[in-house]
């Protein structure tokens, strides 16, 4: 019958609407279920995943030594030309000439954090750091030199 169908429709509709309102009402009355992370406040507790790809860094030891041999594998592996390696000729104590790293220029503004350079590195000289706060006031600051001044190749790394 038309009239019963009419009122049934109204009843069903109102019921479905009330179900939705019950759900939002439930969360309104349970503020403890809030998921918000208050970011700048929780900076201390904020723990990123250890594999998180923040930016490429070159770890140095306390003696200011790194593991980069200047082989340019990362430069080749990088799809966007983010890494530029400048090498120099170094004369070893035994008189042999050897190619060594002079500067490793890393352009953060072009990096897509694809991890291909880390995979390609044969001597584990570069890693991804967990630092994700990259914003700077000047674009030129995104061009970074990864090896520290006067740093040396670690002994035993070839």
């Amino acid at each position: 019958m038309f009239i019963t169908e009419y009122f049934k429709t109204i009843f069903r509709s109102v019921k479905s609407l009330l179900t939705g309102m019950r759900l939002t009402g439930y969360y309104f009355t349970h503020p403890s279920k809030t998921l918000t992370q208050e970011y700048p406040d929780n900076r201390k507790e904020l723990k990123l995943a250890d594999r998180f790809r923040g930016e490429v860094v070159m770890p140095h030891t306390e003696a200011n030594e790194h593991r980069c041999t200047g082989c340019q594998a990362c430069e080749l592996a990088c799809p966007n030309g983010t890494i530029k390696i400048i090498t120099k000729q170094e004369i070893l104590p035994d008189g042999k000439k050897k190619k060594r790293l002079d500067t490793m220029i890393y352009n953060l503004s072009m990096c897509t954090f694809c991890n291909l350079c880390i995979v390609a590195c044969p001597s584990d000289a570069i890693t991804m750091s967990q630092d994700f706060e990259h914003s700077v006031l000047d674009r030129s600051k995104l061009r970074k030199i990864l090896n520290k001044p006067d740093s040396k190749l670690m002994e035993g790394v070839e």
Binding site: A49, R51, F52, T112, F113, C114, N115, M128
Partner: peptide, 27 residues
């Protein structure tokens, strides 16, 4: 997404697949 971050290192553009398998083992 956080789970992806744990294993792949990124949340959205993971780049976890490489020819021949995956880039790293599971977390």
């Amino acid at each position: 997404n956080e789970l992806m971050e744990d294993t792949c290192g990124a949340r959205l553009t993971m780049n976890y697949m490489v020819p021949g398998g995956v880039m790293a083992d599971l977390h």
